[in-house]
Design a protein around this nucleic acid. Sequence first.
DNA 1: TCAGTATGTGTACATTGTTCACTTTTTTCT
DNA 2: AGAAAAAAGTGAACAATGTACACATACTGA
Lengths: 203, 203
Amino acid sequence: MAKKRASYHHGNLAESLLDAVNTIAEQFGIEAVTLRGCAKHLGVSPSSAFRHYSDKRALFTAFATRALNQLSDTLQQAHTEADSRGNDALMAVGLAYVQYALAHPALFRAMWREEAIYTQDPDYLEAALRLQGQISSGFAGSIDDGDPEAISDQELLLWSAVHGLANLYVDGNLNGHLSQFERLKKVEAVITTLKPALLSSDQ
Amino acid sequence: MAKKRASYHHGNLAESLLDAVNTIAEQFGIEAVTLRGCAKHLGVSPSSAFRHYSDKRALFTAFATRALNQLSDTLQQAHTEADSRGNDALMAVGLAYVQYALAHPALFRAMWREEAIYTQDPDYLEAALRLQGQISSGFAGSIDDGDPEAISDQELLLWSAVHGLANLYVDGNLNGHLSQFERLKKVEAVITTLKPALLSSDQ
DNA sequence: TCAGTATGTGTACATTGTTCACTTTTTTCT
DNA sequence: AGAAAAAAGTGAACAATGTACACATACTGA
């Protein structure tokens, strides 16, 4: 870390700071991320961060936004892949959601730190809505329409279930004795159990 | 705050510190809770806390444990009340779970801060298991048996769903335009949608 | 009563977020 | 091209925080 750079200016500090948060969060947890630590990691003075983010919270907001979009990308990919293989999209998306959380616990936590980010930031809100849309996209007849705030009971149920699973595995120490693989098997079983409730036609 | 006490010794500082955390967390959020702030709130020196908790994390662990047990108490009460009124226990417990989170967001968050508490603490683990048992108790044929680590797919599904709902409402800014009451209505609708998946006999 | 233990105090220190005046580079305008 | 202005990074500060440690005070049991 802290390779010395040739020029006085860094060139892309805003983005690099997000990378630094990523690196440190993955390694030591999101709570261990400090502004000074990120700066040192990049070989840059502590105060330089303030040229790009008004404060720590703003940096964390940008990071949360990036993480949300990354998760959305992952879900989108899982959906596409399931479609092309003729697999169930709901199952694929649900599994991918929990799998992402298990693979990147610190990033998953970073997305939802109400008290540590500006949750009214437009970019953050947009990313959160995109994620919601990604969950909904697995449902037949789902329309990515004008009022994305409206979410059906079934859509919310699926989201809640996988979001709850992810949180219980990542933050609650549920099934601490199970391996990652066994946990995913359990997730699959739970989604299978849930499935009937997602198919009833009377909406 | 900081009423001066007559005696040099406080008498019940360990417990009072938890109360202070509670007060400050409810008012300013769990992230705003500081050791020094709690001490000042009690009119006590900052270092006194260390006689009762090895560090901030230990204090937070004790607080999370207390909050978990408080939530369990609430669920237990909801269950009993539903039984005596002939209402559905699963619905009552699920609603009470989310309701508690909405009423005490900072406490609910405090229970699940993996990076800020000692999640292997025996008391904490016990409280978490008790909560799991409380969720399971609504199911017919649930036995509070020897191996509480084993949780059925249906039990985990219910827990995940309400836990996910609680988190999405508390930390995600889901349905930000809805009132507390409307949110609870939505929760009721989601649990109703979920219900069929919890009743199938083939386990 | 008195020694020992438990509990609270005060001072001190390293780390953190943040501010501000300053320097260095890049861009823009004529 | 050269000057003026804007953008980006620096270093020294400051207050607040968690924590350690030597000390003071109160309680308890022989």
